[in-house]
């Protein structure tokens, strides 16, 4: 039953792929290799390694490894700083009054503009890319956390006061959990933005990673390779997003259910 329903839901995907395959074979346009050729190249590039390494090739390790490490490190760093600062600012009207204009300005700067700046400041390499990612994606986390911490239900806070919660308890048991739905919204935005900045930084700095592979494939007329990179980046974006939604669903189960019943 489920399989039939899935076919009913997904039928357009194979249809599109087949149509794409036929169209590209008929057109014989070099920029648009048939999906089958792209798939073959993807297998050759990344999935023809020894079984002991799950078939991953050397190239797969060097393409994905550093990219993913930078992505997660930058995202985690931005999350920690953004949430900590956001809770502090959100809990104090005074502090948020002082910082509001600066935060508005900071988040309005188009993050890719920072790529050349940090590359010039920190020289080529991982620190510059990390700095770009952290500085570029921290704003949605910060702004959402501030908003979440500021709009905690008054009765939640009064209950904490009545029962004499300590400051730490108030933060960890009341304010942060209450702000969690908004924090997660910020973290998800930040994750997709991080992937974009990672690619820009890698392409721009030309120092390895998937973004670099993408551009060098394009420059050396390896169009199937280029499409392969595009597909993999799409898959990566899709997987990250799905994994994050799964996490969110687990952590915020109370939120979804509480909203459904009230």
């Amino acid at each position: 039953m489920n399989a039939i329903r899935a076919v009913g839901r997904l039928w357009l995907v194979p249809v599109t792929l087949v149509a794409w395959e036929i169209a590209t074979r008929v057109a014989e346009q070099p920029f648009f290799p048939p999906p089958s050729a792209t798939l073959v190249r993807m297998g050759e590039m990344w999935l023809s390694g020894p079984p002991s390494r799950l078939l991953l090739t050397e190239q797969a390790m060097s393409d994905f490894g550093p990219s993913l490490a930078r992505l997660f490190a930058g995202w985690a760093l931005a999350a920690v700083i953004g949430v900590a600062a956001g809770v502090a600012i959100g809990c104090s009207t005074r502090l948020s009054d002082y910082l509001d204009p600066l935060i508005h300005l900071g988040r309005a700067v188009p993050p890719p503009l920072l790529v050349p700046f940090f590359l010039a400041l920190l020289k080529l390499g991982t620190p510059a890319q990390l700095a770009t990612i952290v500085f570029g994606i921290i704003w949605p986390i910060l702004v959402n956390t501030i908003d979440g911490a500021r709009t905690v239900d008054r009765q939640h806070l009064e209950t904490a006061r009545i029962f004499g919660f300590s400051t730490v308890q108030r933060l960890t048991r009341v304010i942060v959990p209450a702000a969690m739905p908004k924090i997660f919204a910020g973290l998800r935005l930040a994750l997709s933005l991080a992937l974009i900045l990672l690619i820009v930084a890698e392409i721009f700095a030309g120092s390895g990673g998937l973004g670099y592979r993408l551009l060098s494939a394009q420059r050396t007329y390896l169009y199937a390779d280029m499409w392969g990179c595009l597909v993999v980046l799409g898959l990566l974006g899709y997987l990250l997003n799905s994994a994050f939604l799964l996490l969110e669903r687990r952590v915020l189960a109370w939120h979804r259910n509480a909203r459904q019943t009230t």
Binding site: Q155, H156, T159, I162, M180, H255, A258
Partner: peptide, 19 residues
């Protein structure tokens, strides 16, 4: 706020912590 005092509010959905 005295430490020997407790309050039961009308709006339980906002006074209990849903998490």
């Amino acid at each position: 706020i005295p430490d020997n005092l407790a309050v039961v509010f009308q709006d339980y959905s906002r006074s209990l912590y849903p998490w």
